[in-house]
Amino acid sequence: MTAFIPKALARAGRMVDAAHMKLKKANPALFGSPIRQNMVQLYRHDGDFDTVISIPHHLSFLAPDTNIDIIYGIRAFDRNGGLVAFRKHRVKHFETLQKPISELLGREPDEHGMFSITCHYSSPSGIDFLGTTSPQFMTIFMPRSDRGAPQITHSHKYMDQFPPLKSKFVRRSALVEGDRNLTGISYFIMNSSQVTASANLTLTGPSSSFSHLVKLNPHGAARVDFDAAGEGPFELACEWDRVVNHRKPIAFRRFSSGLVTAAHS
């Protein structure tokens, strides 16, 4: 019964969302274009990395014969879930918006946190054939070190529309970690919901396993460092106490060379 209620509510939420999109598709001039909004990702603005966000004018390459401005909204939170800033940027046909996050926000963000991207179109005309669209983007982690290479991850899940109810579940990463020169892994985990959530990260290696429990404020983020060294293999499992949308911590691996590489888990 305890598992049934969250599933039923999740299904009801999806039905409401589908009905909303159907209305938008039927009459975008009245209800607005059908756009899946609020995709989230991690930013870092610390001693190791800064963050550049790269957003394409996606209607340009999907519907090149149109000429619609896209107004992007960028909302960033600090690690405790407090709003850092919300700024809008108008992007014209075939332009690209690619700037450091501090420039896009008009202020310095926290050392790390979550941000989200929304958009709306200056006109709904001529893009009916695209159906539902989504403002995808790329996040580039620019190394402070001269020796490092930029790391990159694509936009992920949407911010939760409805508060996820309590229901424990475990997500196991498909990434198998380990390298002869690996000295450690830092995972950055985000709470895409508007309620407090807890996550227990467990990294299991060939001889031992380590766990860290983190409590995340609404829209908060946390960094968890593991002393995972050597070939492994190491597997990450993340046990949430709520069915949040975003379930993929971002891994930053540290190597004895001093280099750091990243991937979503």
Partner: peptide, 15 residues
């Protein structure tokens, strides 16, 4: 040093 990511084909942006 390298960084890598897969691309986002059109299906990510439109149905």
């Amino acid at each position: 040093a390298l960084g890598i990511e897969h691309s986002l084909p059109p299906i990510y942006f439109t149905e």
